[in-house]
Structure formats: C-alpha cells, structure tokens
C-alpha cells in the first residue's frame, strides 16, 4: 500500500496502474469479500464504470484531472484536487454522498451539504469508476453499519479516546487550526461515519481496520446512534457545546428575566 502510494506520484505509472487496478479490483474484492465490513458483495457492472467515468469527466475533472490524476496546486484558473486512484469507493460515496463534493467554490474545507447533487445510482457509478482506478476501501455493507448490532458502551469509550477530541463529546463538532473544523456527527448515516473513519477525509486521520476493527467501528456507530435517538434528559441542549453556551444562556436569558422582573418589582403600580 505504502509502496504503491509512493509510485502513484509518478506520472508514467498512471496508465499501468489503471490497467492493474482494473484487473486487481475484482480480485481484491473477491479476496476481502468474506469480511462483511470491507467490501460490497455486488459485482461492478461494466456500464456502471463507464457511466461513472462520463459523470466524472463532466463534474469532477476540472479539479481532479481528466483521469483523476489530481492537480497539485491551484495555479491560475486551475483548482487543486488530489489524485483519486486508490481512495476507493468508500471515499467517493462519503464525499459525494454527504454533498461535500462537487465543491461549488474552493474553500478551506468542503462542507457537508443537504442538497446532494447526484442520485445514489450516480454516486455508485462514480464510486465504481474511481474504485476501478486502483484498489481502495469499498462501501461497507448494511450489516457492517447496523447500529443495533454494535455495543454502544464500548463504542462510547472508543469514541471518547479516538473521536471526541475533535468532534466533541456529543458529536457536536469542534474547531481545528486556521478555520478548519471537525463537523458535527449528529444525524450522519452510519455508512458515511464508517466511510469517513475508513478513508480519513480532509483533515481527519485514517482509522483503518487494523486501527479500529470493523466490529469496533460498528460499536462507534451504535454509540452515535444512541446520541441521535436518545433523549436530552435535562431539557434543551444549547447545542451540546459545553459550558460556553450555558454561560451565555445564564447571562442573556437568566439575567434578562431577572432584570425584567426587578424592573417590574421596582415600578410603581398604575
């Protein structure tokens, strides 16, 4: 993997990689298929790759290059986009499926968007095309991201060690350096959570299966699911951002109510 990554920087390797990649994809899938978390079981129809390629050329190539070889820097009218060989179907499904890609304008960070540009079929086609370039993590199966099969208590422990420092204890998100941020994890589908851990989008580190096993990823998804479905026992959450919003509430609403009552109390009756 590492050696492969080093070589793919070499422009001459692209074409060969493409060929090998196409060949290896099937083989790789076959090899990892028994692990439910690692690969989709459905075969990739050829027309899906072709459809994905045309979609890619129309929508993604301006940044990522015609053959997804990437653009290193954004000189002039060119916009930088990383090479995509080897990122896998999971990365495509995550980036496009959460509306982060295609990016409408270059920014510090691609933001999650509610209006996803493509249908799930089109996303699958794009993913199939990118996956055909070089082997990479596949979209997880439904079973792999089923929160009911995970252990939320252990997922919570894993979450606090591996995730909470950026995404906050309640998955509300947090700040990173220079305007970057860790987004909120609330109401994100388990599939996208899984893919994000698997592929390490943007600033996020990669949590490969050797780091957090597929079962443990499902535990984390189960924990996040309890956050989404679980009640807020104490009432309004104020964004689950910790003491800052609580203090703000005390100053604005608490003090405001008290001063209003104090003014009423001191005013002469009509």
């Amino acid at each position: 993997m590492n050696a492969l990554a080093a070589r793919r920087r070499h422009p001459a390797a692209i074409a060969i990689l493409l060929m090998i990649g196409l060949f290896l994809t099937g083989a790789a899938y076959a090899a990892v298929a028994p692990k439910p978390a690692d690969a989709t079981t459905k075969a990739l129809p050829a027309q899906s790759v072709e459809e994905g390629k045309s979609l890619f050329r129309a929508n993604c190539a301006s940044c990522h290059g015609l053959n997804a070889e990437g653009r290193a820097t954004g000189n002039g009218d060119k916009i930088a986009g990383p090479p995509l060989a080897g990122v896998g179907a999971a990365a495509v499904d995550f980036q496009v499926g959460t509306g982060r890609m295609p990016m409408t304008a270059p920014g510090i960070q691609a933001a999650r968007a509610d209006d996803v540009v493509f249908t799930q079929e089109q996303i699958d086609a794009l993913a199939a095309y990118v996956a055909s370039l070089a082997p990479g993590p596949a979209v997880p199966s439904e079973e792999a991201v089923d929160p009911t099969k995970g252990n939320p208590a252990f997922g919570g422990e894993l979450f606090r060690v591996n995730c909470a420092m950026c995404h906050n204890f309640a998955g509300s998100g947090g700040a990173l350096t220079r305007g970057k941020y860790a987004p909120s994890l609330r109401d994100v589908s388990g599939k996208h959570i899984y893919e994000a851990m698997q592929t390490g989008p943007q600033s996020m580190p990669v949590f490969s299966d050797t780091n957090i096993t597929p079962e443990n990823k499902r535990d984390i998804i189960a924990f996040l699911d309890t956050l989404d479905s679980q009640e807020n026992p104490g009432g309004m959450t104020l964004g689950s951002l910790g003491p800052v919003t609580e203090g703000l509430f005390a100053w604005v609403f608490g003090l405001g109510i008290f001063i209003a009552i104090a003014i009423w109390l001191g005013a002469k009756a009509a």
Binding site: R160, V161, A164, M165, C166, H167, N168, F169, S172, G173, G174, A175, A182, L241, G242, P243, V244, E246, G247, L248, A250, W251
Partner: peptide, 15 residues
Amino acid sequence: PSPVTAGSQPDWYMG
C-alpha cells in the same frame, strides 16, 4: 487522562 473533548471549558466565571 487519555481522552478529551473538543470545547473543554470551565464554567463561565473561570473563563
């Protein structure tokens, strides 16, 4: 001591 949460703040008066 190993984990931490984003937005680790004291209550406002220690802010």
